[in-house]
Nucleic acid binder design. Structure first.
Lengths: 142, 142
DNA sequence: TAAGATTGACTTGTCAATCTTT
DNA sequence: AAAGATTGACAAGTCAATCTTA
């Protein structure tokens, strides 16, 4: 827990200082850029960032106001909405990615052996899988 | 990152639901109970929780209002203040610990082999050490 | 009736300024 | 002058209620 918090604080401060970009914004841009059509449903995005529905609405609000993403309605489901990567968002991501990737390398990966990295990848994937979506199920036990 | 967020959300929700206790409060109680004299300077506590000075002041404020901790002045340094574990806080910790420990076992450790756990412990200790206190140093590079 | 998204009220933490003591 | 703690103003998320569409 402490390692996670410490690394994140460093990466967050670095991205903020060198590119004036909050880490959650980077995360949104990255996920959108990897998605087909550079777009994701609000729910999908919320799940990937592990935040709530209300949270993703407000986050996308701010990024839309800054011109980094746009909203688009969903043809197949009138209730749904897409968050779409804007051109400006793509540019910002391209600009920030090297900084962040170097940060991850320098402040995290550099302290681990390749074996540790691989084990971490596999083990954490297992943990993530087992716990995804569990917080939502209030009274459920098991 | 996603594994961390997912596990934490589950543990947080569990502790809140079954013992009506926020996870940061548990963390404070735990650190105080392990400290000599059941007390820690505000700074020490902030460092362990990886939050800011202002943040720890407010957190201790709330827990003091709830009767779980007390404040005490420091004899050796008139500027300093201690957060001290109160009797009620000790009771709350005793009551909540089994729930949380079972949660950690069930939602985290159960998905890892003993080898993975040990490697994680060592590797993350290294990462934590390398990154502790780095976020505070604004312009420093290296 | 339920699901997806949004909004209002609120909680909790951050940052920068301030106060006290060293 | 600097360090430890606190405070005011603010940022960003949560929860529960609401609106629209399925």
């Amino acid at each position: 827990m402490e390692a996670h918090a410490a690394v994140l604080d460093v990466l967050k401060a670095e991205l903020q200082r060198e590119r004036d970009l909050p880490l959650p914004w980077y995360d949104v841009l990255l996920h959108l850029s990897e998605a087909p059509g550079h777009r994701l449903r609000m729910q999908q995005l919320a799940a990937r960032l592990v935040i709530t529905q209300g949270g993703i609405t407000r986050l996308v609000d701010r990024m839309q106001a800054a011109g980094l993403v746009q909203r688009a309605s969903c043809e197949s489901d009138g209730r749904g909405a897409y968050a779409v990567l804007a051109a400006e968002g793509q540019a910002v991501l391209r600009d920030a990615a090297p900084v962040h990737l170097r940060g991850v390398e320098e402040h995290f990966l550099a302290h681990l052996t390749p074996q540790e990295v691989e084990m971490l990848r596999v083990a954490m994937g297992r943990v993530r899988q087992a716990n995804s979506g569990r917080a939502a199920m209030e009274g459920v036990r098991g």
